[in-house]
Design a protein around this nucleic acid. Sequence first.
DNA 1: TCCATTTACTTAACATGTTAAATAAAATAC
DNA 2: GTATTTTATTTAACATGTTAAGTAAATGGA
Lengths: 147, 147
Amino acid sequence: MSDAGMRSIKQSVPIALLRAREAVMAHFRPLLAARGYTEQQWRVMRVLDEFGSIDASQLADKSALLLPSLTRILQTLEEEGAIARIKDAQDKRRTLISLTDKSRDAIAKAAESTQAAYREIEDQFGAENMNQLLDLLDKLAQVKLRK
Amino acid sequence: MSDAGMRSIKQSVPIALLRAREAVMAHFRPLLAARGYTEQQWRVMRVLDEFGSIDASQLADKSALLLPSLTRILQTLEEEGAIARIKDAQDKRRTLISLTDKSRDAIAKAAESTQAAYREIEDQFGAENMNQLLDLLDKLAQVKLRK
DNA sequence: TCCATTTACTTAACATGTTAAATAAAATAC
DNA sequence: GTATTTTATTTAACATGTTAAGTAAATGGA
């Protein structure tokens, strides 16, 4: 109220992104929780499933996590026997991470239900809208400011 | 690798939303941090600035926070003297929250820099794209699945 | 009226987000 | 070749996200 020129909170892009994401995740989260995975653990496992054995930095980048978060998540997943870590022989700073056979099976099963939910969302939202949205989101993520 | 039919992680809507949001917040967060606010504290204060005195549930809804998070955030803001809480006289379950004069001034100042950043982002991204994006995000947030 | 239910928070417990600092190994610069 | 800088990851500290359970006040019947 102190500034009539301030954009309404409803028009805020960060909040709109947050709400849209929350609406989508509300459909997925219960499916993952039923199998004992958090959203982030699932992202990590999907990336490993898609890319095979990669180092922690690449894994963090591809799964959109910060390294400190990834460190903790990998500890948990390792204790559960879902992933394995080995030091890179050439570069001993690096840790190479990969799925275990056990988790590969678990992922395939969990993926069935998440894919079904994804198709339903795409049905409701429209494939056209979905492509357009992904395109805009990618453009927005590229925006660089001067300075 | 276990399922050739699984959507690539790059095509994941939740991750695309997360990356876009992170790209935008990377511009705002330092501006808020310079004034000692987190992103969430700032959301709360902006809502209060826009709507005046409202109860915790409405505040949580408008600022896109869960109530447990809001409870903690309000404790912090109250200790800092940024907000005040009073019990609703009619309904003693409710707490009415409002800004202090002190924080109203602080918000007006911080808003100058965030608004400038917002305009820059809109310049780069395009007002047309921005409107289209907000429209799609709103549509996506509305999607309901059967069952 | 009374009790079961609902509503509005709050607390608790554990996972993740964010920033800064620490550590160890590799790469670079003299 | 050794000191310096950079890179990869971890640890620490504090804030928030998420779910479940707890508490107190209002509501809605029998």
